[in-house]
Structures are given as structure tokens and as C-alpha cells.
Design a protein around this nucleic acid. Structure first.
Length: 595
RNA sequence: GGUCUCAUAGCUCAACUGGAUAGAGCAGCUGCCUUCUAAGCAGCAGGUUGCUGGUUCGAGUCCAGCUGGGAUCACCA
């Protein structure tokens, strides 16, 4: 039974019968805890058609529903709020329809396709905390849309070319002495990152020397020998110089090997990778075509621009005077390429930090002006920066939190606490490691996903490593706890059937509350997709786990002598565990059978 | 300076998009394990929602102004 739909239909009938007008946009909200009931109809807006004051309006509707709806057993009116008590047998019906649907929470295919881009790192340094938020967010949004019946294509664009990688290459050439991941035992991305830092160090020193000799800071920046070497390598790369290309391929290869391990541990995946070295020349043709159509204009020096001042934005360069592309040009080309590669996608989601909001605003506007209808379905999933208690992460100050290190610390902490609690006698060493990994990563992912993506957030290492309270492990724990009950019920031969459930006539408060939360799952799923916000799912899962624990503490399940009630409670437990597992899966978090 | 964005309990976050006496977690205090996993539950305490006005039956939410953070406004990506 779809309670929300039935309730709306019944109230619609009520307004039609009482006031001669069926109302569709009813305001229904959860009832405040202090009043009896679960659903509250806000009656202020209805006074226009009822021609009565809010209390009278509410009372009239309440009386009608009790007499005619069959699902409302009582009501009370507080000011203009009509608090409805849904009959227990209606709640049982709601529960039965969830229990009997094995695919509850997984909508059938809707035939639509969507692309989600996320991660998209540079290849000159390892992944850090900011990338973790990005990866977890993008992955989760993709999973949420999948649950709603979309076919989702996860992609990323790897920024594998440009001056930044040439810097690492230059430093390696000067100081590397042929060092490789194999010879040093370092993870490939870490090794390349080391030379990026090495570049910076030398560059700074050389700059200082030049400045001391009276060279201006800006000139010194360019004139330092190591920067000259890097620039030279970039020129050679663009000229397809064999030796430079070889070194570039080798060092990028090291990075990919390292990233591969990190992605695997994060639990994220991609259907297709785009490399900037393949796409950086795209878009130029589009811009030239756009110039012919008069969408763009050429300045005297030959550079091509778009004027967005009438849209409240500025002018933006698209082709340099020498005819080369800029970032925006590439992104235009890449977007078009993706719609060619995946013709059925209705839009793209770009998971990129909010410092690029202006960029995407301009990008989507340009695509629209070029006549691409799908531009309106492109969305910049813009997320706030992750701050540390000490402030912003700064590579220069060494405050960058490395992704690999952080995941390891989380797993270590989880293992430490798991061993301290000592509920794991029957687990072997490998199982303890696996469980710790699951808990550590669950804590990390939940911590980063529970906050509204749009908001800037604070990452306090001490708090993130907590496994109590509003955390992933709290939900994992609740799941494990329920599974223990279900296993016990199975061993006792307690097997609920639908006909058992039909005999349930009354419910305890905590059971009703639990069904109420479960019943909200699909709404939350839609809300999370609409807002591109895994936080909605994270908070739902927390509320469900919290609700179950209240039930668990207030009712000793196996003390129940009434067989029907016992079976209902087992069925209820099974469903809660199942929905917890499904919702956590949308966050990329696994859930254990025991912990 | 222009544009955008944020400000809620000591701390970290919610608040179903305009609804009732603003809710959780952490930290603090008090209870609950001889019974299904205490990584749990119950309770106490904690608030002029940055400030000032406005819109209306009703504002943390919408509008204006102010204060204070942040981002952005490159022929970088």
C-alpha cells in the first residue's frame, strides 16, 4: 500500500466533498513528537476555499477522514494543524507491501541514461582528502540515480598533460638518477609527487637567487633554469619529441598504477576514462564554427572571444591569438565528444569543487548558445572545500592529508577499537582485517557524505575517527545486531509469512515509528537525486538505525509469547537490516554480518 | 571593486524548500548489561538561528541593508 498516495487521495476527496474543490497541492508533514499522530495536514492554505477558520477547516476534514477514509482512526487539531492517527492495520498493510517486495528501494529501469564525471585528478601528485570527498560524492550520486532506474555512466577526465607534469619530469631528470617505483619501493603516484615537490623546492631556491641579483619576481619565476627545463619539455611534448613522450608515458604510468590501488581501496569505479592528452585539441572546430555563426567574435590580434556581458558575465577567451585552445575550449570539445560516445545520455553531472562554479556557468551557457539542447541538463555538482582545524590544506605547509594515509589510519583505528571491544573471538586474523577495513572506510565515507555537498566542511581527524554516535559504524553496528537476531530466529525456525503479518492488529509506538521511516525511503531517494545530495541518504540511514535501536531497547523480541507478534518483529527486523544495507550501499559503504 | 556563496547549542552538522515550543551527534552530568551485540538506550543541561528592518495568518528559510568568513572575476587548469 502506498500510504502517501492513499492519504492524499482521501484528503482530496474530503476537500471536494466538504468545500466543493479537490485540492492537489496539499501540505502534509510529519507530526511533531509532542502531539499524537504521524501525518499532519497544514490547513491554513485551505481556509480560502473552506471559508472557515483554520480550526474548523481542520476539524471538518478530520471528521470526514475518520468516517470515510478507512485509514485514519483518530485526529486532533492544534491551531490550523490537523494531526492524523493512521490505523495500525493500515501501517501493517504498508509494512506488508515493503516486506513482500524484494526489490524495495530499487526502481525498475526508466530507460534514461546519465553521465557522472568525478575524481578527475592531475597526474603530478597523489590523491588527497579533497579528492576523497569528490570521489565519494560522485560515486554515490551515480549509485543513487542507478537505484532510481537510470543507466549511469561513470567517467573521469585525467589531466595528464601540461606544465605540471613537466615539472615532475624536469625534477626527475635532474635529480632522479633513474629512480623508479620498483627501485625505491614507493607507490608510483607518491614517487612522481616527490619530484613535484623537489621541483618546487629548487624552483624557489633559484628564484630567490635571481631576485637577490635584482631580477623581478615575475621574471625570476620564468627565468629559473629548472622552470626553463620544464617549459622546454612542454614544448617538446607538444612537438611530439620521442624522448620526452617516452618519459611522460613512463611517469604517468607510475601514477596510474598508484591511483589504481587508491581507487580500489576507495571502492570507486569508472566505465570510461578520458585523457586530456587526447581531448585537449578538441573544441577548436566548434569555436571556429561558432565564430562563423556570429556567436563568438575575433579581436584584432586574432584571439577568439565570447561576450557574455548581456548574461551578466564577462568576456571570455576561447582561442588564443596563436590559435591554441584554453581550458574552456577543451571542455566544450569534451562535452560534445561525450554525447557522441554516449548518444542516449540526457545530461552530464560534473563533480568538481565550487571554485569552478564560474567556469561551469560559462561552459553550459556557451554550449546552449551553440545550440546543444542537452546543455540545460548538465549539472555542476559543486561541493565545498574540506578544511582542517588548522585551516585550508596547503601543500607548501605540508598540511595536505594524503588519501592513502588517511584510509590506512581509519582502518588501523577501527582495528584497534574492534580488538578492544573483543566481540570477535570466532573471527580469524584475515576476517578481523576485512572487518576493520569495512568499518574504517565506512566511518570515513559517512563522515564526508553526511554533510550537504554544497557546504564547506571541517575535517577534524579526531572526530572523523570516532565510531560512536552519528557515524557510519553506528549504522553498521545496528545492521550486524539485527542480523544476529535474524540468525537466531532462523535457528529457532521462526519464519514470518504474509498471512502471519495480516493477523497483526496492533503495534507498539516504536514499531509504528519504524514503519513510518521505512515508508519514507523512496521519497528520500528522490530527494537525494533531485538535490544531488548523498547526505539525504546518510541522514535517512542514521534515522532508521536510531529508530530501530529504540525499538530494540524497548521490546525484548524473543520474550514475546504471541507467535504472530514475534513473527512480525522478526520480519520488521529483516526489513530494517535490508534497507540499511541498501541505503549504505548507495553511499559506497558495506555493512557487516557481525561486529 | 563586480558577481556568487556561507553564518543555527561550547564543537560538528540537521531542519521534508514558508508551518507548531528549531532537532541530532560529540563534549559535560545522571541512570540502564545474570535476559536478543552497551560501537546501544533513556534522561538532564545547553539557542535572541551574525545584526537591523521588511513581506504575511506564520520567517532559520523569502526581500533590502549592514557585519564577518570563503570563492571567483587569467590568452592557468
Amino acid at each position: 500500500m502506498n500510504l502517501d498516495f492513499v492519504l492524499r487521495t482521501e484528503i482530496r476527496k474530503a476537500t471536494d466533498s466538504l468545500f466543493g474543490q479537490p485540492v492537489d497541492n496539499l501540505q502534509i508533514q510529519p507530526t511533531n513528537a509532542e502531539f499524537e499522530g504521524s501525518h499532519t495536514l497544514v490547513c491554513f492554505p485551505l481556509t480560502k476555499i473552506s471559508k472557515k477558520d483554520p480550526e474548523q477547516t481542520a476539524t471538518a476534514i478530520g471528521e470526514y477522514l475518520v468516517a470515510n477514509s478507512g485509514i485514519v482512526s483518530r485526529f486532533n487539531v492544534v491551531k490550523g494543524f490537523l494531526n492524523l492517527v493512521i490505523a495500525d492495520k493500515a501501517w501493517v498493510e504498508v509494512f506488508k507491501s515493503i516486506y513482500s517486495n524484494k526489490d524495495f528501494g530499487l526502481l525498475p529501469s526508466n530507460g534514461k541514461e546519465l553521465m557522472v564525471e568525478y575524481s578527475s585528478p592531475n597526474t603530478n601528485k597523489p590523491l588527497h582528502l579533497g579528492h576523497l570527498r569528490n570521489n565519494f560524492l560522485g560515486y554515490s550520486v551515480a549509485e543513487i540515480y542507478k537505484a532510481l532506474g537510470y543507466k549511469v555512466h561513470k567517467v573521469q577526465i585525467i589531466n595528464d598533460r601540461g606544465i605540471h607534469i613537466c615539472k615532475s619530469m624536469a625534477a626527475w631528470k635532474l635529480f632522479g638518477h633513474g629512480e623508479t617505483p620498483q627501485s625505491s619501493g614507493m607507490k608510483g603516484d607518491k614517487l612522481v609527487g616527490k619530484y613535484y615537490v623537489e621541483f618546487d623546492k629548487n624552483h624557489k631556491a633559484q628564484m630567490k637567487e635571481l631576485v637577490d641579483k635584482g631580477v623581478s619576481e615575475a621574471d625570476a619565476e620564468k627565468q629559473s633554469p629548472i622552470m626553463q627545463l620544464a617549459s622546454d619539455m612542454l614544448r617538446k611534448w607538444e612537438a611530439k619529441d620521442a624522448e620526452t613522450l617516452q618519459l611522460w608515458k613512463t611517469m604517468n604510468g607510475w601514477v596510474y598504477e598508484g591511483f589504481e590501488k587508491t581507487y580500489k581501496r576507495m571502492g570507486v569505479d569508472f566505465e570510461k576514462l578520458y585523457y586530456e592528452s587526447n581531448t585537449y585539441l578538441l573544441g577548436k572546430e566548434e569555436v571556429l564554427k561558432g565564430e562563423e555563426k556570429g556567436i563568438f567574435f575575433k579581436k584584432e590580434d586574432g584571439s577568439v572571444w565570447i561576450d557574455l556581458t548581456s548574461d551578466g558575465l564577462d568576456q571570455k577567451v576561447l582561442l588564443r591569438a596563436d590559435g591554441t585552445s584554453v581550458y574552456m575550449t577543451q571542455d566544450i570539445g569534451t562535452a560534445i565528444l561525450r554525447f557522441k560516445d554516449f548518444p542516449k545520455i540526457e545530461g552530464q553531472v560534473y563533480t568538481v569543487g565550487n571554485e569552478q562554479e564560474y567556469h561551469f556557468k560559462v561552459l553550459f551557457l556557451i554550449l546552449k548558445k551553440l545550440g546543444y539542447q542537452w546543455a540545460e541538463k548538465c549539472y555542476h555538482l559543486s561541493y565545498g572545500m574540506v578544511d582542517l582545524p588548522s585551516g585550508k590544506m596547503k601543500s607548501r605547509e605540508g598540511t595536505v592529508v594524503d588519501a592513502d594515509d588517511l584510509m590506512q589510519e581509519m582502518a588501523d583505528e577501527a582495528e584497534k577499537q574492534t580488538r578492544e571491544l573483543g566481540k570477535i573471538e570466532e573471527l580469524n586474523e584475515q576476517q578481523i582485517k576485512d572487518l576493520s577495513e569495512m568499518i574504517g572506510l565506512g566511518a570515513l565515507k559517512f563522515f564526508l557524505l553526511k554533510v550537504d555537498p554544497k557546504k564547506r566542511m571541517l575535517f577534524d581527524p579526531n572526530e572523523s575517527i570516532q565510531l560512536l554516535g552519528h557515524t557510519g559504524p553506528f549504522i553498521q553496528y545496528t545492521h550486524a545486531r539485527i542480523r544476529a537476531i535474524v540468525r537466531k530466529a532462523e535457528s529457532m525456525g521462526v519464519k514470518p509469512t504474509e498471512s502471519d503479518l495480516s493477523q497483526v492488529t496492533s503495534l507498539e509506538d516504536s514499531e509504528r515509528d519504524g514503519i513510518f521511516i521505512l515508508n519514507n525511503y523512496i521519497n528520500k531517494l528522490n530527494e537525494a537525486a533531485r538535490d544531488y545530495s548523498p547526505a539525504v541518504i546518510a541522514n535517512f540511514a542514521f534515522d532508521l538505525a536510531k529508530g530501530y535501536n529504540q525499538f530494540y531497547q524497548s521490546i525484548p523480541i524473543f520474550n514475546e509469547t504471541d507467535a504472530v507478534k514475534l513473527k512480525f518483529r522478526i520480519a520488521f527486523s529483516e526489513v530494517v537490516a535490508d534497507v540499511l544495507k541498501k541505503s549504505m550501499k548507495l553511499l559506497g559503504i558495506q555493512v557487516p554480518e557481525k561486529m
